[in-house]
């Protein structure tokens, strides 16, 4: 009896569980329900069966949105990973001035997405910004360039964070590894490919997973910078949902799109849990 008194009862978890149920789970159930309704934001939602789901087949912007989402995620990964990896390894070096420079690298992390977006919109103004001195200055308005410009600004915001991950991981590689290879006559480049890179494998996975999760939240920056445009050149899936829901006030169809996002998010959660070992924690020390 005495040994059992320490075990905290269900009541300890109840506030968190109930709160999450109300503002986390209920909305997820709600979004599934709303996907079968017609609702323009006024009055009450009307049940219309599977019409919203059927409408997806003829929505060219939906397929465009999925394509843009995948492209942006892949481009962001391709841009950020080598940059963060190389800069992180470099910043892990011993020279003192690197500490100062690392601080500079870190500065974008202090700015909110909104602050970064308004800054780059001003810089990229085609007639009165920095962009004006670069060809015709058409960056955010070019259907060919806009998505890559967004990927660049995303990199500007997040490379510092991933650099930090790589920097600290590099510092943890045992010194003896490098000393041993130096004796074998390995040069800097060879050391990088044979020691540093393999040792950072787990960090690469972790950083990539974080980018993948983050890619679903790039939405706010796009909303602020291009609003999905020009046309649908930067209209990623979350933005397509937002446009349908809060510009077109077709909340039912927006909810159907949102269900896709929830499903993608849940799938990603499983990837995160698998790749980080969170799931194992639940059994690690049970009964201790």
């Amino acid at each position: 009896m005495k040994a059992r008194t320490e075990r905290p009862g269900l009541g300890w978890a109840a506030p968190a569980v109930l709160f999450f149920a109300a503002f986390g789970i209920l909305p997820v159930i709600g979004v599934v329900y709303l996907s079968f309704t017609q609702w323009n934001g006024l009055g009450d939602p009307q049940w219309i069966g599977t019409a919203n789901w059927a409408a997806m087949g003829s929505d060219a912007d939906l397929f465009n949105g999925i394509g843009k989402t995948v492209t942006l995620t892949v481009v962001s990964w391709l841009l950020q990973t080598p940059l963060a990896l190389l800069i992180g390894v470099w910043a892990a070096g011993p020279q003192r001035n690197r500490a100062v420079l690392s601080t500079l690298f870190f500065l974008p992390l202090l700015l909110s997405t909104a602050a970064i977006s308004v800054t780059f919109v001003a810089l990229l103004d085609p007639n009165f910004g920095l962009a004006a001195s670069w060809g015709d200055g058409n960056f955010l308005g070019s259907p060919e360039r806009a998505l890559y410009v967004i990927a660049f600004v995303i990199a500007w915001q997040f490379v510092p964070f991933h650099t930090l991950l790589y920097q600290s991981a590099t510092r943890q590689i045992p010194r003896s590894f490098f000393e041993a290879s130096a004796i074998d006559g390995a040069t800097g480049l060879k050391q990088f490919f044979h020691i540093t890179l393999p040792q950072l494998r787990n960090t690469i996975i972790a950083s990539s997973v974080l980018m993948l999760v983050g890619s679903l939240t790039y939405f706010e920056m796009i909303l602020l910078m291009t609003n999905g445009g020009p046309g649908t050149a930067t209209r990623v899936l979350p933005l397509h949902m937002y446009a349908k829901g809060f510009v077109g006030f077709d909340m039912g169809y927006a909810s159907a799109l949102a269900v896709l996002l929830v499903a993608a998010g849940a799938a990603l959660s499983i990837v995160v849990v698998r790749s980080t070992g969170y799931h194992r924690m639940s059994s690690d020390r049970e009964g201790a």
Binding site: P143, G228, G231, T232, G248, F249
Partner: peptide, 30 residues
């Protein structure tokens, strides 16, 4: 708002030459 959202997006595509006038009309009619 629903039709208007679609129209403005499609019109941007027409300006960018990403959508033909006939396709614009067909999409809006639907």
């Amino acid at each position: 708002p629903k039709v208007s959202e679609k129209m403005l997006t499609n019109l941007q595509k027409v300006f960018l030459n990403k959508l033909s006038p006939a396709d614009f009309a067909a999409d809006m009619a639907a």
